[in-house]
Amino acid sequence: MAGSIRRHWKRWLIAGVAAVAVLCTAGPYVYINYVQDKPPAALSLDDPPRSDSSGSSPGSGQGVEGAWKVGSGSQAGYRVDEVLFGQNVTAVGRTEKVTGELEIEGNRAVSGSFTVDLASVKSDSDQRDGQFRGRVMNTERYPEATFELTEPVDFGSAPPVGEQVSAKATGELTVHGETNTVSFELDAQRTADGFRVNGSIPVTFADYGIEAPDFGGIAVEDDGNIEFLLAFDRA
């Protein structure tokens, strides 16, 4: 009798462990693939401007030379791949708190920079945001990320309103108190009263003294991207 009870108990124990294993595997899969919203698409010049255009058209007499500043409708943030309990997900956080300036001579941007308020970056998860502001980025000590051009950007020509041109940008990126030289492709598009600039800067976290998070069933890849879409108005 006692042996029979022990055998039944073992079977129930094995079944219970198997059920927990299935739930641990299937739960995140169901949540990620059927419940959680898809991550937003990468920032792109195909996105419509987020501010009204009421000025005169640069294509009808107003040139692009001179001083410009980052205006409303600008966004910046991060895109990074995570592994959540064995399931691959893409985490995206963004903010509209972006400032900056640009100086154009002829068809070249000869100087410029932009700054992102990291403490205001938000994703679709309050828990992720808390980790980002705290143990990952320590925004109390390092509240901003900045990029500054160190070489002119040559766009070749000023396109008509609505059209795009591409160029390569080189400058210094400062994140988490560390500065590195970076180069990346960017696109520019003229609007009725200014222009927009879009790009993605690859970032390897170790280069900036950032330890990729790995805790509680969540692991983050060793690199990611800083995305930006900047709308420029006359300074």
Rank of each mutant, 00 (worst) to 15 (best):
residue 36 Q to K: 12
residue 187 D to R: 11
residue 130 G to Y: 00
residue 150 T to H: 04
residue 114 F to G: 01
residue 29 Y to H: 04
residue 49 P to A: 07
residue 14 I to F: 03
residue 81 D to T: 14
residue 81 D to S: 13
residue 190 R to H: 07
residue 222 D to L: 09
residue 68 W to N: 05
residue 212 A to M: 06
residue 211 E to N: 15
residue 73 G to S: 02
residue 7 R to I: 11
residue 190 R to K: 14
residue 79 R to Y: 04
residue 61 G to A: 12
residue 234 R to T: 15
residue 161 V to D: 13
residue 116 V to P: 02
residue 111 S to Y: 01
residue 60 S to G: 11
residue 49 P to T: 08
residue 127 Q to C: 00
residue 208 Y to E: 08
residue 144 E to A: 08
residue 192 A to H: 13
residue 215 F to Q: 14
residue 70 V to Y: 01
residue 82 E to V: 04
residue 232 F to W: 03
residue 201 I to D: 05
residue 201 I to A: 08
residue 118 L to K: 06
residue 196 R to N: 00
residue 65 E to I: 12
residue 1 M to Y: 12
residue 39 P to S: 04
residue 232 F to D: 00
residue 115 T to F: 07
residue 53 S to V: 13
residue 176 H to M: 12
residue 185 E to A: 15
residue 151 E to K: 10
residue 117 D to Y: 06
residue 232 F to H: 01
residue 117 D to W: 06
residue 32 I to V: 10
residue 63 G to S: 15
residue 144 E to G: 00
residue 16 G to W: 00
residue 134 G to E: 10
residue 85 F to T: 01
residue 155 F to H: 10
residue 88 N to G: 11
residue 147 F to Q: 01
residue 162 G to T: 09
residue 126 D to H: 06
residue 30 V to D: 03
residue 129 D to Y: 03
residue 35 V to I: 13
residue 192 A to K: 15
residue 29 Y to N: 06
residue 202 P to H: 11
residue 71 G to I: 06
residue 57 S to H: 12
residue 106 G to E: 12
residue 142 Y to F: 15
residue 40 P to S: 09
residue 207 D to M: 07
residue 46 D to S: 09
residue 107 N to M: 15
residue 177 G to V: 07
residue 225 N to I: 11
residue 12 W to Y: 13
residue 35 V to T: 06
residue 128 R to F: 03
residue 182 V to S: 06
residue 183 S to H: 12
residue 188 A to Y: 04
residue 112 G to M: 02
residue 186 L to E: 03
residue 210 I to Q: 09
residue 179 T to A: 11
residue 104 I to C: 07
residue 3 G to Q: 11
residue 143 P to S: 11
residue 52 D to S: 14
residue 105 E to L: 15
residue 63 G to Q: 14
residue 98 V to S: 05
residue 215 F to I: 14
residue 36 Q to H: 10
residue 97 K to H: 13
residue 111 S to C: 09
residue 177 G to D: 07
residue 4 S to L: 14
residue 127 Q to N: 07
residue 35 V to N: 03
residue 224 G to V: 04
residue 79 R to W: 05
residue 53 S to R: 13
residue 171 G to Y: 02
residue 173 L to R: 05
residue 82 E to D: 10
residue 109 A to K: 08
residue 203 V to E: 06
residue 160 P to I: 10
residue 105 E to N: 15
residue 166 S to K: 13
residue 23 L to S: 04
residue 119 A to N: 11
residue 141 R to F: 09
residue 207 D to H: 09
residue 230 L to F: 02
residue 218 I to K: 09
residue 12 W to N: 12
residue 211 E to R: 12
residue 221 E to C: 11
residue 151 E to Q: 13
residue 32 I to M: 01
residue 94 R to C: 05
residue 95 T to L: 12
residue 125 S to D: 10
residue 114 F to N: 02
residue 27 G to Q: 05
residue 95 T to E: 10
residue 194 G to S: 08
residue 95 T to Q: 10
residue 229 L to Q: 00
residue 161 V to Y: 08
residue 165 V to P: 12
residue 191 T to K: 07
residue 4 S to I: 14
residue 150 T to F: 05
residue 67 A to F: 14
residue 213 P to C: 07
residue 189 Q to M: 12
residue 27 G to M: 04
residue 28 P to D: 01
residue 195 F to E: 02
residue 148 E to M: 06
residue 187 D to H: 05
residue 14 I to P: 00
residue 225 N to L: 13
residue 103 E to R: 14
residue 32 I to Q: 01
residue 183 S to Q: 13
